[in-house]
Design a protein around this nucleic acid. Structure first.
Length: 121
DNA sequence: AACTTGACGAGGG
DNA sequence: CCCCTCGCCAAGT
């Protein structure tokens, strides 16, 4: 199972496709939900070349900011797309995760779940 | 095979 | 809030 495996990538995309308009998820959160084999870095790697109907703009970093990139995606674009869906950013380019982070139905919002990526490795 | 570079994250100053 | 360090892991050189 690696990042180039089709199913591995599909798991990430399927989850991202379920993020509602105007809500966001973080790389680390996705990694924790998908479980073994997934880390924030690998999720980020999978996202950088997401295809088709994946709402890639709804995945941001744990600080509530859009990640800068040296790739072909202008930093302002992601934020602009999110603002268009109703996500509010501060003048410093940060959004309030307490307000906009999405947690799947049924999953009780639990900050412990988000703790420490490397603690489990 | 070593070293660097990321769409990352947590903890500390 | 900013900056740094370290842990992580895959790619590119």
């Amino acid at each position: 199972m690696n990042v180039n495996d089709k199913n591995y990538r599909a798991e990430v995309y399927d989850l991202v496709k379920n993020i509602p308009r105007g809500r966001v998820m973080t790389y680390g959160q996705i990694a924790i939900i998908l479980g073994e084999g997934y880390t924030a870095r690998t999720v980020g790697y999978v996202m950088h070349c997401s295809e088709d109907g994946v709402p890639w703009q709804r995945v941001i970093n744990s600080q509530g900011k859009c990640s800068t990139s040296k790739l072909s995606i202008p930093i302002d674009l992601q934020q602009a797309m999110l603002e268009q869906e109703g996500v509010v950013f501060s003048d410093k380019g940060k959004c309030d995760l307490d307000r906009f982070q999405w947690w799947r139905e049924g999953s009780e919002r639990d900050d412990n779940e988000q703790v420490s990526l490397f603690e489990k490795n």
